[in-house]
Write a protein that binds this DNA or RNA. Structure first.
Length: 415
RNA sequence: GCGAUUGUAGCUCAGUUGGUUAGAGCGCCGGUUUGUGGUACCGGAGGUCGGGGGUUCAAGACCCCUCAAUCGCCCCA
């Protein structure tokens, strides 16, 4: 018989278990706790959408749309796409359900996203993000609240040390268009000296040349006009209010006038929380204002701000999580003892104490299991104990062992 | 999509200029201890050397192809 080959996981996917799972969980739980403090409602969307939802909103020329989407035809011949980001899907849901009535609307979600990219550290084909959006608010206070949320999240995860908030404004549509034209003009004048990548960017997305890592591009980039010269009075005032708000909330930030974001829908505020501890994947949380997105999806003009953060990336920055074992491991030995143990375990669990049963092997084997599981106590119940209505409770830290009557077990283990 | 490095036991890795039966540590199983863990000692199982093809008397090692991982570019969380 031919040997069956073991299947391999799909490239860029991961099975998250053990310590990685603890890290993942800690990130999500912290996020869920803090988003409630800020009054964000949870929302769940489908993981796939009609392809047009992403193609229209992100910008047809962006890499995500042109080469990184997982798109496929379903049996009815419709083109569907696994979501590569949250924002477009949230906006679609907003329009589909007529959520205008709830504006301004603070929404948060988290879950898997899919991009067909070359895997690297902190970059996967199926990856996971946290996401927070405020829809229907054109006030800078919304930007400030969102950034405070992000800042508090990173602080409570204990990873704010070494992570900096870089902030920029892309201006309103008028400012952005004027700046863009000026940039195109500037870079066209120096086209011959630009790197090949930047020549391509000049045609596709000239703002991104500002991000170029090619050393030869640096002098040209440094000499490029900055947004500040093209900001309208309104856009300038908006940015000033955002930065003042951050200052009064004690959120540390640095201005990065070359910071632009990948997708076409960004306006005004753009920001990234960046670390140098993850190699080339330095952005740990990023977002901005996307006042034009709803219209791109055929809806009315509805301003919005939002950010997303990579769960895996945040998890990698966390201190090693403590593995906490159960309060007790039960070791039943002999006739009728398993049933008695089950009953006691039920009482413990209803009292909020965690416990498991070691039901295999000799005493030594079971003690080893309890120790390896990191249990605080072992509860031994043999035929002698059962007959006397007691259990032997051994504290695995101190090594002390004593007998406890059934009714006193919850109290004995609770401390 | 491009470039570089790597792939040997469940895990982390040795393996000399190609040469007998491929090793170690940890983990796992068993024993010293038939109802008592952590430490120690003894024993055991476990590998078609990522996969396929080639060179050679002989390949874990050399060559080609392929798959995967890691790092960088692109882009992005």
């Amino acid at each position: 018989m031919a040997k069956i080959q073991t299947p391999q996981p799909v490239r860029g996917t991961q099975d998250i278990f053990g310590e990685d799972q603890e890290r993942f969980q800690q990130v999500v739980e912290t996020f869920e706790r803090i988003r409630r403090l800020y009054g964000f409602k949870g929302v769940q969307m489908p993981v796939f959408e009609p392809t047009a939802v992403f193609a229209r909103s992100l910008g047809e020329t962006t890499d995500v749309v042109s080469k990184e989407m997982y798109s496929f035809e379903d049996r009815g011949g419709d083109s569907l796409t696994l979501r590569p980001e949250f924002t477009a899907g949230i906006c679609r849901a907003f329009l589909s359900n007529g959520w205008q009535q709830h504006m301004p609307m603070k929404l948060s979600t988290h879950g898997p996203l899919f991009r067909y990219e070359r895997p690297q550290k902190g970059r996967y084909r199926q990856f996971h993000q946290l996401d927070a959006e405020i829809i229907g608010a054109s006030e800078p206070a919304a930007d400030v609240e969102l950034l405070c949320f992000a800042d508090q999240l990173l602080k409570e995860l204990g990873i704010d040390d070494g992570v900096t908030l870089q902030l920029n404004t892309l201006g309103d549509a008028e400012s952005r268009d004027a700046w863009r034209s000026a940039l195109v003009e500037h870079f066209s004048d120096h086209q011959a000296e630009l790197s090949d990548d930047s020549k391509t960017r000049l045609a596709k997305n000239p703002l991104r040349i500002l991000d170029s890592k090619a050393p030869n591009d640096r002098p040209i980039v440094d000499a490029a006009p900055t947004i500040d010269s093209y900001l309208t009075a309104e856009a300038s005032e908006f940015f000033a209010q955002v930065t003042e708000g951050l200052n009064s909330c004690n959120v540390a930030w640095t201005r990065d006038s070359s910071l632009v974001r990948g997708f076409d829908y960004y306006r005004h505020t753009a920001f990234e929380f960046v670390t140098d501890r993850l190699g080339a994947q330095g952005t740990v949380l990023g977002g901005g204002r996307f006042d034009g997105l709803m219209e791109a999806l055929g809806g009315p003009h509805i301003p919005a701000v939002g950010w997303a953060a990579g769960i895996e990336r945040l998890g990698m920055l966390l201190d090693a999580p403590e593995m906490i074992g159960p309060n007790a491991i039960f070791v039943p030995l002999g006739e009728g003892c398993e049933a008695a143990a089950m009953k006691l375990m039920g009482e413990l669990r209803r009292s909020g104490l965690s416990c498991e049963m070691a039901y295999k092997g000799n005493m030594k084997k079971r003690m080893q299991k309890a120790n390896a599981a990191g249990a605080a106590h072992v509860v031994i119940i043999g035929e002698n104990e059962l007959a006397n209505g007691v259990v032997a409770v051994k504290n695995l830290t101190s090594g002390d062992q004593r007998e406890i009557v059934f009714d006193g077990l919850v109290e004995a283990l609770a401390k």
